[in-house]
Simulated assay, not measured.
Amino acid sequence: MISTVETMAAIDNKLSKRFLELDPAGYFIIYLDREAGLICAKHFTNEVNEQGLAVDPETGKPIPVTVKVERQPTATLTGRTAKEICIQLFESTKPSPISRFDHAAYLGREFMRAELALVTGQDYVQD
């Protein structure tokens, strides 16, 4: 018999593979600073081309997802909890670097996952 946890994980894995329209306002790289006990998020700008790919606004070239690219973030946010970093991002940053509701919801979910990993000591890998 499949447990509730396994069922939830299967649903989550399936939904993670769906098509997402990119936010033209940019993207975030989320990671943990365990020494400081912080959730960190670096914001990077991008443009979205006709094919729906994120491109570097300076070069017009697609931003690769499998190769590390050295780009300077436009902002770095940190918080001890998901709520703290969300308040910073959505209430204190003007203008907000988010232009899509689905992107805002995704970030909230990711910040909660990061907080759980920070508290439990588990690894965190951004979805």
Rank of each mutant, 00 (worst) to 15 (best):
P95H: 07
T66V: 10
A114C: 02
E110D: 00
A25V: 06
F101R: 08
P24S: 12
R80C: 03
V55F: 05
E47C: 02
D102Q: 11
G60F: 14
V5S: 10
G37S: 08
V48I: 15
V55N: 03
K83E: 13
L15P: 01
Y124C: 05
D33E: 13
K94I: 15
T66G: 08
L107C: 00
R80P: 01
E70I: 14
E70P: 00
E35I: 00
P73F: 05
T78L: 11
M8K: 08
E58S: 12
Q122N: 13
G37Y: 06
R34K: 13
K42W: 01
T59G: 12
L118G: 03
M1V: 12
A36R: 15
P57T: 08
S16C: 09
C86W: 06
F111L: 04
L53Q: 15
L20A: 10
S99V: 02
T45R: 09
A41S: 09
I29N: 12
V69D: 11
E6W: 07
M8Q: 14
T81S: 15
E47H: 02
T120L: 09
T66M: 07
D123C: 06
I29K: 11
M112K: 12
T76I: 15
D102L: 04
G108C: 13
I11G: 00
E115R: 02
V55W: 02
T120V: 10
L116E: 14
R34D: 03
M112L: 15
G52A: 06
M1F: 08
L15G: 00
E35Y: 03
G52M: 09
P57Q: 07
K83G: 01
I2Y: 07
K94V: 15
N46G: 00
E70T: 12
S92M: 11
